[in-house]
């Protein structure tokens, strides 16, 4: 437990100091996205990594958070701080209700059903033009404010988003090492054994699905208020796959792995600007290579690799 706290402390300090090292608005802006994607990846990882339940529709929950916040504040002039929790409640309720039938499905079927759900949501974003502005998007979403501070610059947004991200990180770390986290991992390893020990697995799966959707919604609301503009294109099937890639690359079930995956997948396209169109090939290739050669993700795979290299080095040294 102490080690977990230490890890979190180091991580938090690095996050807080980062703006001093990387100045420049552009990079700060990218790091804001790393924060949002980290939240989303952690949310999905709770479901996929801990409970072993896949979702290919999380971009939908992310989008719903963004749109509900966006519409309430831009069209109806609500206070963002009220819109955000309301969005979370609505998305959570929806996830909870749909969770019961959807999480009865397993494996491939669950993947397809969540995918279908995500696409339906995406179509609704596009078609309810009066509400969402349709394919051309919704603009004029206000920035968040706190007292006299308006979060309108990259650095301010950085601290806003990462404040929330750190909270989610701590939240997820605590959860993983608790009664509920253990029960979730138990469901992953052997659902029937978990049931026999008294774990209400179907309820638990729905609960974690709901929590995961709420985290995505929160990330969506924050995204809407930092970007001040949302369009359906950000919430399509491709983004669900991107989230999945982050989680798999980082490491299933690992909170800091989710951060690594999110950071890598957010920064990579920025560094590969010239190769803009190649990014989907890179995602596809990375997904396949990771599953084949490093199924534990970077957090487990890289240390393993070093260990192997080191051992080999020693052996050849002896020879």
């Amino acid at each position: 437990m102490k080690r977990e706290l230490l890890k979190f402390g180091v991580f938090a300090i690095l996050v807080l100091l980062a703006p001093l090292l990387f100045s420049g608005g552009y990079l700060m802006n990218v790091l804001v996205f790393v924060g949002i994607n980290t939240m989303l990846a952690i949310g999905l990882n709770l479901l996929l990594g801990n409970a072993g339940q896949i979702s290919l529709g999380h971009a939908g929950f992310f989008g719903m958070g963004a749109y509900i916040s966006g519409i309430l504040t831009a069209t109806y002039a609500w206070n963002p701080w009220f819109a955000m929790p309301l969005a979370a409640v609505v998305v959570g309720l929806l996830a909870f209700l749909i969770g019961f039938p959807i999480l009865k499905l397993k494996g491939h079927y669950l993947a397809m059903a969540t995918l279908g759900l995500g696409i339906i949501v995406f179509i609704v974003f596009n078609e309810t033009v009066d509400l969402t502005g349709g394919p051309s998007g919704l603009s004029g979403i206000p920035n968040l404010t706190m007292g006299s501070v308006t979060f309108d610059s990259d650095v301010k947004n950085y601290y806003l988003i990462w404040g929330f991200t750190l909270m989610i990180v701590l939240f997820a770390v605590n959860l993983a090492n608790s009664r509920v986290g253990r029960a979730l991992r138990a469901v992953h390893d052997s659902e029937v054994a978990a049931k026999v020990l008294g774990v209400n697995t179907s309820l638990l799966k729905v609960q974690i699905f709901t929590l995961s959707a709420v985290i995505s919604s929160l990330a969506g609301s924050l995204y809407a208020h930092t970007m001040t503009f949302v369009a359906p294109a950000s919430f399509g099937f491709n983004f669900s796959v991107e989230l999945l890639t982050m989680v798999v690359i980082g490491g299933l079930g690992s909170v800091y792995g989710s951060f690594l995956g999110a950071a890598l997948l957010t920064l990579l396209p920025e560094f590969l600007r010239a190769a803009h169109d190649y990014d989907i090939i890179i995602y596809g290739g990375l997904l396949m290579l990771m599953v084949m050669f490093m199924p534990g993700g970077l957090v487990r795979g890289v240390p393993d690799l070093f260990r192997k290299l080191f051992r080999r080095g020693k052996e050849s040294g002896h020879a």
């Binding site: 608790s178 253990r182 774990v199």
Partner: peptide, 26 residues
């Protein structure tokens, strides 16, 4: 629960003898 430690396996056994919810744990 093959990916969990022996201790954690037994701890899952105590699930019904404990009651903290998701939020309280997190």
């Amino acid at each position: 629960f093959g990916q969990m430690t022996v201790r954690e396996n037994v701890m899952v056994g105590m699930h019904t003898k404990s009651s903290c919810g998701m939020l309280s744990c997190a």
